[in-house]
């Protein structure tokens, strides 16, 4: 089975702090990581390969340093990696990004399954996966927590409001996966050595069958109008009491008086 996994290098948004004086992001010292959901996608792909054979190729669109993220995926056990990188791709929104990645996947030839993380932790849009499926005109199943493949048939569990939907479809298909689908493995020493040796090809706009008006900022229907700090909630009162019981009694009293319970 030919599996492609799309990964994104993201700033670790859990490490981002806000400067209390200027109310802006402190980016210094924030590490770049493989988007956590994408590691689950890589793990899912490797598990499928171990069971059914085939090849796992990881692909990323980003600046040259995104190669580090791809190397980490190779160290985990992916076979090959491709970086899609060009100044012309800069400023792309989800429509332009998915157009570009879909063109890269088309260039790869036969692909049976594309796996993406549910969303990236910097943009949090969860849109690039479904939009790629649309560009490639294949089926999609999002929020997947279990994958079973038998021949051309794929059986999936998809998270829903109160549980799971069991969905059946055929290859080729694009899936987006949840964190709960698996526990991503750590890179092995052998894998890390392999990743150090791997030369990652870089595909630019000229290497793919793309039209310039659909790339980067030009190909992006959405524009950022402004950016600001999130509104803060106002701090209320701390309940001071000597014991847990007293604190509980005071809280329940306050909530009842305010007719909240």
């Amino acid at each position: 089975m030919e599996i492609v996994v799309c990964v994104k290098q993201v700033p670790d948004t859990t490490e981002v702090k806000i400067d209390p004086v200027t109310n802006t992001l402190i980016r210094q010292g924030v590490p770049s990581i493989v988007n956590p959901f994408d590691k689950n996608a890589v793990e899912a792909a490797i598990q499928l390969k171990e069971k059914h054979g085939g090849k796992v190729t990881v692909i990323s669109m980003g600046p040259p340093q995104a190669k580090d993220a791809l190397k980490e995926c190779i160290a985990m056990g992916a076979d090959e990696a491709i970086l899609v990188s060009d100044r012309a791709f800069g400023g792309a929104d989800t429509l332009a990004t998915s157009y570009t990645l879909a063109a890269a996947i088309r260039k790869m030839g036969r692909v049976d399954m594309i796996i993406c993380g549910k969303q990236a932790i910097d943009g949090d849009t969860a849109q690039v996966g479904p939009e790629m499926a649309e560009h490639l005109d294949i089926a999609q199943v999002t929020c997947v927590s279990k994958i079973d493949v038998a021949g051309q048939i794929v059986r999936l569990e998809r998270e829903h409001d109160e549980g799971y939907e069991v969905i059946e479809t055929q290859l080729p298909v694009l899936l987006t996966v949840l964190r709960s689908i698996n526990e991503p493995r750590y890179p092995t020493v052998k894998g890390t050595m392999k990743s150090n040796r791997t030369v990652i090809p870089v595909w630019t706009a000229d290497d793919m069958n793309v039209q310039p008006q659909y790339l980067g900022l030009k190909g992006s229907p959405t524009q950022v109008r402004r950016i600001f700090s999130p509104p803060q909630r106002v701090q209320g009162e701390l309940i001071q009491a000597d014991t847990a019981r007293e604190a509980a009694i005071m809280l329940v009293k306050k909530l009842s008086e305010a007719k909240l319970v």
């Binding site: 929104d93 989800t94 429509l95 998915s98 943009g123 949090d124 849009t125 969860a126 849109q127 690039v128 996966g129 479904p130 939009e131 499926a133 649309e134 560009h135 999609q140 999002t142 929020c143 998809r158 998270e159 829903h160 409001d161 992006s220 229907p221 959405t222």
Partner: peptide, 23 residues
Amino acid sequence: ATNDGRDLGPRVACRVKTGLTAD
């Protein structure tokens, strides 16, 4: 921005080639 809305939105936006702002 439910599981279904986030599944449908990008697919539709991409087909009609327009912008979609998530969440």
